[in-house]
């Protein structure tokens, strides 16, 4: 199924919002964020939103269960999960990232039910990229500006308007819902629209690829570049929190009187207390070990467990790191020393 919405995605978004909880890139106080849709057109020229859409499936913090009583007469109630959502205007890198997280949290042994239910009930409508941003490098890590991985519907921008293609059955259902807002795609060629997106220029990805530096992880681990990179690290959580594939979380209790909540919320391996144990032992005590952990996880450990990079090249960490600790810079320096 392929249809063109005449030049604007607004009617489609309006139609979608009628019977769905619609989330999309919105402008808030000058920032482009992924949030609940408020009726506006998509922001002009946005590349990626400040926050990644991962928070729809893995909220920054969420309550897992409530309990009454502490040591006595304990009563536990699992927290219900909110209803289905449509995530609109997701970028291909971010949609693929949802799939990467699902590799871990959806794995057979202990599937994370809350993540899984949200993943199943979220329809991802992806807008392919017709231009790469300053920090984009998806192609260097196996992605593509036209990739439909993790998406239910693909939207390809063309000179005439937008071409839509349902990728999954769920996508097809949603498209059928809002047929009135769409036009027949007469003469539209989805393949060539996708190919145009596929071929956009992406300067960063042309020059550098992690493929060469991932062979011998022992040497990478021992490299002196970690200490150099980490020297300027602020031990803040920006890189992990804006990252669409970082999924690490912590569990914590909040008790008021006799009732409490067990939360889970994002955590970052860059924080000093991430691995700090009772008795003050810390296996990764300085910025050097922590910075190395972040890159090693994306470039080696994730590959070793799941067969692909744990990075989709969205460039957020590069953009947002206040001191320019850049994924590709690390790879480039590793190329020189490994």
């Amino acid at each position: 199924m392929k249809m063109a919405a005449a030049g604007s995605l607004l009617p489609l978004m309006e139609a979608l919002s009628e019977s769905n909880d619609l989330w999309a890139p919105i402008v808030e106080d000058g920032q482009v964020v992924f949030g609940r849709w408020k009726g506006e057109s998509l922001p002009d020229n946005y590349r990626v939103t400040d926050n990644s859409p991962k928070e729809l499936l893995l909220p920054q913090t969420e309550s897992l269960m409530r309990f009454e009583g502490v040591y006595d007469q304990l009563d536990i109630k699992e927290e219900p999960i909110e209803g289905p959502k449509v995530a609109f205007g997701v970028r291909p890198c971010d949609a693929a990232a949802l799939d990467l997280i699902a590799e871990v949290l959806g794995s057979d042994d202990y599937p994370d039910e809350r993540f899984g239910q949200r993943k199943d009930s979220t329809t991802v409508v992806t807008l392919a990229c017709d231009e790469a941003g300053e920090h984009c490098f998806c192609r260097a890590v196996g992605g593509s500006p036209a990739s439909d991985r993790g998406s239910d519907i693909m939207i390809y921008p063309t000179d005439e308007g937008y071409l839509l293609r349902a990728v999954t059955g769920a996508g097809q259902d949603i498209l059928r819902q809002c047929e009135s807002a769409l036009d027949p795609a007469e003469g539209g060629d989805v393949e060539s629209a996708a190919a145009d997106c596929e071929d956009i220029e992406m300067p960063l990805a042309e020059e550098i690829s992690p493929d060469g530096v991932t062979e011998d992880w022992h040497r990478v681990f021992e490299s002196p570049i970690w200490e150099q990179l980490a020297g300027r690290c602020r031990s803040c959580g920006i890189c992990g929190y804006v990252c669409p594939t970082c999924y690490c979380f912590a569990l914590f209790d909040d008790l008021r009187g006799n009732s409490g909540v067990r939360f889970r919320g994002w955590d970052s391996c860059q924080f000093e207390d991430y691995l700090l144990m009772a008795g003050d032992h810390n296996p990764r005590p300085t910025e050097t070990e922590r910075t190395r952990q972040r890159f090693m996880h994306k470039l080696h450990y994730f590959v070793s467990r799941w067969g692909e990079y744990g990075c989709v090249g969205c460039g957020r960490c590069a953009d947002k790191c206040p001191v320019g600790i850049h994924m590709l810079a690390a790879i480039k320096e590793l190329e020189e020393v490994v």
Partner: peptide
């Protein structure tokens, strides 16, 4: 012994290498 939180391989905390 290391700091673990989820126990099920999901929270990402307790890795030693891969």
């Amino acid at each position: 012994e290391i700091k673990m939180q989820c126990g099920v391989g999901n929270c990402g905390r307790c890795n030693i290498g891969d």
